[in-house]
Write a protein that binds this DNA or RNA. Structure first.
Length: 838
RNA sequence: GGGAGUAUGGCGGAACUGGUAGACGCGCCGGAUUCAAAAUCCGGUCACUUCGGUGGUGUGGGUUCGAUUCCCUCUACUCCUACCA
């Protein structure tokens, strides 16, 4: 052990040894407590980015720490391998999506390995592999059988020039990203999963997820959007154009029923459709709305049809209105302008009556329609017949009673959560195992015929879909022999990511899962990923787990026990005077400002998330090459708390690198240290080890890092001052080696070996701290009137009189006290002594 | 419009359930080493100060022996969501 630490040699050496010794390979061990650490798996886009480095470093700290704490740690890795970029590559690089994807996986796997993550690579999976996706085809068939999967018409973005369906992210300002053509909405029959039938369970189970960030739970709860209210049946009067006699609406404010002055339906409501067939003006209006496209202004069409108020002998007009949404509630509402802002705006525009029915009890102010501000507060009912005088919450119940008694309404709970549309008109995805027979029937592919393999493309199609592969698409029905065509849509790629964490338990099994393994490993103890997946991925995974449970595949109800959402990796940006982004690495700073490499002035931009378009990405591989993986890891963990954004800076990386070398030098010095006297206990070091552990458990890695800095500084001090015996130092260094291991594993192994320790450091036991090693003498602050006057060495068990006496010995205390009258003394053992004087 | 969150030195950030504000790191300053530099090591670093102290955690107030921490007011910024009846 001498000379400079060479990360290039050390890192590849230990990666090789770990692999040869298979130390991260895990199996189920019933006598050992398991710990499942999972980071969100990457999309194989080509190469890893700093976001990945941060994500997997955080997870690796937890995984290595828990292993040293004696857990059977499960830490697998895989690839979210289906998706659009592979198809784009097929277009721009003329590559087969499969070849492109597998090539990227190979490259990125090596990059991840060069980071030294403690992953069980034997469990690696790629979702585009038939061995993976055949199981989700089975799930789909089971869901179809049980009514959980169904088909209905739904809108897609259609590019009329490229003649293709576009994903939302391919529509930019209403135009196709490639053709630039105006995108039109087109109705297609598509597959859906009934996520909505799990709305209530998905909502209530959020309460059990106490190791999830509150923020994420609130976001999911809002997304599910439970609201309680009533359905009310109105009867239609004087209508001679429709067969319908009734119209049902949903409301959360049944108490305001006497303030109803109009009823409105969505342009997509079936009644609107019927009206438009008889009323050409209505049809014109509806067509107009469809081209208006996300306008905020409220427009309506008066159908001249009237509605009877359920409790009054009163007729109110029926409108078709653009602000009524078809996919929430029933697509029909009653408008109470006095107590709903939207209704008020609409009423003022179309000169409809405004009747106040709730009087606020909190604000004195009377409702005033000319201010065009609806009264939303609770209060007491007025102008409301049998409800007058009631609190409006009470009135809700009374109205419901009466509605139910008269058979014109009922209590109803609504959810915003909609069913999950899983059809994608894409090639690079999992084929949906359905046949459409020539007699018109929909036939699920038989289980024995799974998987339905993706056809191989043999042409460089500008936008490939399975629809174009006729020899694949045209087939026969296996039971009748009739002609049939395959479903040519593929699954949304969220389908694959909704169950991969279960598949890791038995990644090569012919069965989708082996229950005893799943029951052992699941749920995931610690899931780590970006906040951008707070809603969709996490909600779909929770839904999928529940659905698989109900189909008998698994026994758990929630997949992720603990969740951590990490912040982004950011970097400064620059723009030249033309407004183009300039790479930070080519910018020089001098007295006159910032210049690019041709000497032209550049403007300093904001600090933003690393992205190719802003040219502010830093390539992990070049960092690993120059500084090493341990430096990259250490930098990722220093300073910034993991949940916040981390700004990438060159000086930050350099200083992380410096510390790696400092640890090495310190340990080197310690190895050659001699001193026979044992002058000091190792209290300080034990205290710091305790802090490092606690901070890892709490995901405060930046604080653990600070503790390690202190530990190394203390170690140097102890050696410089010859304050400890050689044996003492030896133990301190050995413990240092262990506590830095989760952060900088290669360096720690290298020191471990140099110290002559047995086995791998990765297999070592985390130091046990006994209580009596922890310092209980503190420097107790002494205050007078809340102002600090000095410190006194004291133990927690010291008596008040003793501490006061010691305090009075302090000159600063003595002087301030003088002979002033002491009013009160506050003594909190181990915390503070405060003397209150006049 | 609705919801969530943040605000502490030149910078990133510490401060456990109210108890020494600024741990640790960066930067900066000084010193050692060196022919010199880099690297490294040691020390200093909130502001003001008559060297006794005084002020200080976005603003203004409150509770308390004591407030970055709890309560109220205002301001700024960030994120999510959005005509959800």
């Amino acid at each position: 052990m001498s000379g400079r630490y060479n990360h290039k040699i050390a890192e590849s050496k230990w990666q090789k040894r770990w692999q040869e010794a298979n130390i991260f390979k895990v199996e189920k061990k019933d006598n050992k407590k398991k710990y499942y650490v999972l980071e969100m798996f990457p999309y194989p886009s080509g190469k890893i980015h700093m976001g990945h480095v941060r994500n997997y470093t955080l997870g690796d700290v937890v995984a290595r720490y828990k292993k040293m704490k004696g857990y059977n740690v499960f830490h697998p890795m895989g690839w979210d391998a289906f998706g659009l970029p592979a198809e784009n590559a097929a277009i721009t690089e003329k590559k087969n999506p499969a070849d492109w994807t597998y090539g990227n996986i190979k490259y990125m796997r090596n990059q991840l390995k060069s980071m030294g993550f403690s992953i069980d690579w034997d469990r690696e999976l790629a979702t585009c592999h038939p061995g993976y996706y055949k199981h989700e085809q089975l799930f789909f068939l089971k869901m179809y059988e049980s009514g959980l999967a169904y088909k209905k018409m739904s809108e897609v973005n259609w590019d009329p020039v490229d003649k293709t369906v576009l994903a939302n992210e391919q529509v930019i300002d209403g135009r196709g990203w490639r053709s630039g053509a105006l995108v039109v909405k087109k109705n297609l029959s598509q597959w859906f999963l009934k996520t909505s039938s799990y709305s209530d369970e998905l909502l209530t189970d959020l309460d059990s997820l106490d190791m999830w960030p509150n923020k994420v739970k609130i976001m999911q709860s809002n997304w599910i959007g439970k609201s309680e209210g009533a359905e009310i049946i109105f009867s239609l009067v004087n209508n001679n154009i429709l067969e319908e006699k009734n119209l049902k609406v949903f409301t959360t404010r049944p108490d305001t029923i006497f303030g109803a002055t109009f009823v409105a339906i969505s342009p997509d409501h079936q009644l609107a459709n019927k009206i438009s067939k008889k009323d050409s003006a209505a049809k014109k209006f509806i067509d107009q709305i469809k081209t208006m496209d996300s306008e905020k202004t409220k427009v309506g069409y008066n159908t001249k049809i009237f509605i009877k108020h359920p409790f009054l002998d009163k007729k109110i007009p029926l409108f078709i209105a653009n602000f009524v949404l078809m996919d929430y509630g029933l697509g029909a509402i009653f408008g109470c302008p006095a107590h709903d802002q939207r209704d008020l705006e609409f009423a003022l525009k179309y000169d409809l009556d405004v009747i106040q029915v709730v009087k606020s009890t909190t604000s004195e102010e009377k409702f005033n329609k000319t201010k065009s501000k609806a009264l939303l507060e609770s209060g007491v009912m007025i102008n409301s017949d049998f409800l007058n005088g009631l609190e409006n919450e009470k009135a809700k119940k009374e109205v419901l009673k009466k509605l139910e008694k008269e058979g014109v309404g009922n209590k109803k709970t609504n959810y915003k959560l909609r069913d999950w549309g899983i059809s994608r008109q894409r090639y690079w995805g999992c084929p949906i195992p359905i046949l459409y027979r020539e007699d018109g029937s929909v036939v699920p592919v038989q289980e024995k015929d799974l998987p339905v393999l993706l056809p191989v493309l043999n042409q460089n199609n500008p936008s490939p879909t399975t629809d174009e592969v006729n020899e694949w698409k045209n087939t026969t029905c296996p039971s009748t022999g009739m002609k049939a065509v395959r479903e040519t849509d593929t699954f949304d790629t969220f389908f694959e990511s909704s169950w991969y964490f279960l598949r890791y338990c038995n990644p090569r099994s012919e069965q989708p899962f082996i229950k005893k393994d799943v029951n052992y490993w699941l749920p995931v103890d610690q899931y780590i990923g970006g906040i951008e997946h707070a809603i969709l991925h996490l909600l779909y995974s929770r839904f999928f787990t529940k659905a698989l449970r109900d189909l008998g595949f698994v026994d758990i109800s929630e997949p992720f026990k603990g969740l951590f959402t990490q912040g982004m990796v950011t970097h400064k940006t620059f723009k030249n005077l033309k407004g183009d982004w300039v790479e930070p690495s080519s910018v020089l700073e001098n007295k006159e400002g910032h210049l690019d490499n041709s000497g032209k002035k550049v403007k300093v931009g904001k600090i933003e998330k690393m992205s190719k378009s802003k040219k502010n990405v830093v390539n992990p591989s070049s960092i690993i090459d120059v500084y090493g993986a341990d430096t990259a890891r250490w930098f990722m963990l220093s300073d910034s708390p993991p949940e916040r954004d981390l700004e990438w800076t060159d000086v930050g990386v350099a200083s992380a690198h410096k510390f790696i070398n400092k640890i090495w030098d310190t340990c080197h010095k310690a190895k050659n240290y001699t001193n026979s006297k044992n002058l000091e206990k190792r209290n300080k070091f034990d205290n710091l080890i305790k802090s490092v552990s606690e901070n890892i458990e709490k995901f405060h890695f930046n604080k653990s890092v600070a503790n390690i800095y202190e530990y190394v500084n203390e170690l140097n001090k102890a050696m410089n001052e010859k304050k400890a015996s050689a044996n003492n130092i030896k133990n301190i260094v050995r413990d240092l080696c262990i506590i830095i291991h989760p952060f900088t594993p290669h360096l720690s192994e290298e020191i471990w070996e140099a110290l002559g320790c047995e086995d791998f450091c990765a297999n070592a036991k985390w130091p046990q701290i006994t209580k009596d090693n922890i310092v209980n003498t503190i420097e107790l602050p002494i205050q007078i009137n809340g102002k600090l006057k000095g410190l006194v060495s004291a133990k927690k068990e010291d008596k008040e009189e003793f501490v006061i006496k010691k305090a009075k010995d302090l000159p600063s205390v003595n002087k301030t006290l003088n002979d002033k009258e002491v009013i009160k003394i506050i003594y909190i053992p181990g915390k503070i002594l405060n003397i209150v004087i006049k």
